[in-house]
């Protein structure tokens, strides 16, 4: 970098942005009652956000990657162990990449 400080400015900025997003959620959530309709609605939203991030990426993957995803999901569902699902899924992706799938 021509300016030796610029990476550190970017790192500080990124840290502040990420921390602010976490703190903002906490600060807003502290004013919502722990029970009731609004709390139930809020509890649904993070899952919606994860689903909205993951779904388009899943839809854009190839058939083999989709198979790896499905099998890792089934492994988690039936064993209850995320380790099993993750190892199976990543193992398939690595094998698929080396086999050109």
């Amino acid at each position: 970098m021509t300016d030796p400080w610029s990476p550190w400015i970017a790192i500080a900025m990124l840290t502040v942005v990420v921390f602010a997003s976490r703190f903002l959620g906490y600060a807003l959530g502290s004013h919502v009652p722990e029970r009731g309709r609004l709390r139930r609605l809020l509890n649904v939203l993070p899952g919606c956000a994860i689903a909205a991030v993951v779904a388009p990426q899943i839809a854009a993957t190839g058939p083999f990657q989709m198979l790896a995803l499905a099998l890792s999901g089934l492994a988690l569902w039936f064993t209850g162990q995320i380790t099993v699902g993750l190892v199976l899924g990543l193992g398939m992706l690595i094998a698929g990449a080396h086999l050109g799938l």
């Binding site: 997003s21 976490r22 703190f23 903002l24 959620g25 906490y26 600060a27 807003l28 959530g29 502290s30 919502v32 809020l42 509890n43 939203l45 993070p46 919606c48 956000a49």
Partner: peptide, 8 residues
Amino acid sequence: ILMGLTLA
């Protein structure tokens, strides 16, 4: 933000 809301 959403996760912070629910985890508060």
